[in-house]
Amino acid sequence: MSTPAWILEIFAAVMLLVAEVSAGQLVIARAWTRRGSAGADIAVSDLLMGIGMAGILVPGLSTLPNAVWEVVFAVMTAWFVWCLWRESRGRGAAAVARGHYAPHLVHSAAMLYMFAALAGPSVEGSGMSMSGTGGMSGMAGGSSGGMPTPHASTLALIFALLLIAFTVHDLDRPAGVDGYFHVVGRRPVPAGSALAAAAAGPVALRQPTQADAPETAPRADPAAYTAERLLLSPALVKGCQVAIGVIMAFILIIMI
């Protein structure tokens, strides 16, 4: 007997939901435009993590080979290292730990570790099976015994502890503060609208400028307006961050 498959499937469904929300945020923020690109890296990262973790949890949801995911998250990790360095250079180690990008760096590095550990050599007797359906996808991809080495299991615990620390910190923080929970949540919105209140959180939005006029015009489509309001809600963004942290830590703990 091992961790029941239906528990893994529930967590995988939550991760797919997170991926869907992140995709929706990218679309609404128009991430391909210059104005919407702020914070798009975080949303892209969440999107990829959602898909990647769903694939780890449920074999049938695996989309890419582990090696490809390793490359993807190696690039994401390098990107967030650079962002964090740029953000906190000359401000000491404490600034690095409190940095806007620190949790995203840990998330990306943990994903890289997970795919690397799952693809790594098996160690006899070093652990138990991870899933009732023949192992998590990374393992199901051929190596049901693809347990991390003992040394790597220590690293898994360290990552899990960091993720838990960031998760409780996320929960304790006001949603939307400091742009931490997606900069897309700070996109200009109709002044005085409910969306403005929802997206702002405790942080004041900048006033719409002339250049924002096309975006800040009242929407004619109430359904789209509601969807936008929901997807950019700081509470939802915060929920996604917490879900990513909890489920990623869960996977790492199960891997030990």
Partner: peptide, 24 residues
């Protein structure tokens, strides 16, 4: 309080481990 919360979170995750779903 956050440290206590983190410890409870850790406990919950540990409880999901494979070993806990065995007769042991």
């Amino acid at each position: 309080q956050l440290l206590l919360a983190a410890t409870w979170l850790m406990d919950g995750m540990l409880q999901y481990q494979s070993f806990m779903y065995t007769k042991a």
